[in-house]
Amino acid sequence: MLEYVLKRVATMFVTLFAVVLLTFILMHSVPGGPFTAERKLPEQVERALIQKYKLDDPLYKQFFDYLKGLARLDLGPSFKYEGRTVNEFIREGFPLSARLGLLSVGFTLLTALPLGILSAVKNGKWQDILVMFIATLGITIPSFVIATALMYVFSFRLGWFPVFGVKKLNGYVLPVIALSGYSLSFVARLMRSSLLEVMGQDYIRTARSKGLSESAVIIKHALRNALIPVVTILGPTIAGLITGSFVIEKIFALPGMGVHFVTSIANRDYTAIMGITIFYATILVAMVFLVDIFYVMIDPRIKLGRES
């Protein structure tokens, strides 16, 4: 187990290093410096700026400086806003995005799992058809369309929820639904197919022939194994929900990370784009790592070490 964890930690760092390297190269191959603007700066000012941000250093040295900064969890200064750092952007934006993401994770799990189970148990009946219809809608309709549709119906037409902002608690309702639409449908579908597969296995017949009640068979025997594939995709799902909210934040005008990211793109604020990308990637990689570890712990069929 320890060996496996260490190996996974090592690959995690390799991945993160690749991410940093790739973003760094991409952002430094943009034609023109970060200070080339329509309004030409005086030469001395430009030189001073370049010196201040050490842009005249050779590229590999800049990269090592950046890595050193990362080791101290310092993502560097913003290129567009004098005296502000990328860390500040993240500190301002991330709490809201994280709250939104975690609420969506909760909402996804609380609705998708029961719906998927219901759908599998009532296989072929109207409940199954209804749930799968909704799930297909959720998978095919892009989140920004869901978000705008929800906003139009529930905020403008019915006036049940605020149009934007999260001053009141019910401001979270629509963003959370719109954000979880895709993952909810995906998890529900996976839960259904995985439970259906397990229900066809021999040990379920054994459990039934012992005379166990149907609910006992499902809860005690089938569900435990059926949950394993669901757990596998939880890592990317959670990370996606926490980080994937640019569009939702933009539509509902919530001042989260996504808004900072989109503004940085519009401003061509390269350090900010780079920093936020790396931050997002780190969350994602860490989530996948945690889930992988958890996965090994819950699935008795996976044997590590000697066999593999």
Partner: peptide, 18 residues
């Protein structure tokens, strides 16, 4: 594996910026 651990939309965005 490394490419697919990175959120792909982020990379599409980076390339588009570039």
């Amino acid at each position: 594996d490394i490419i697919s651990t990175i959120p792909l939309t982020l990379y599409v965005i980076l390339i588009m910026v570039l």
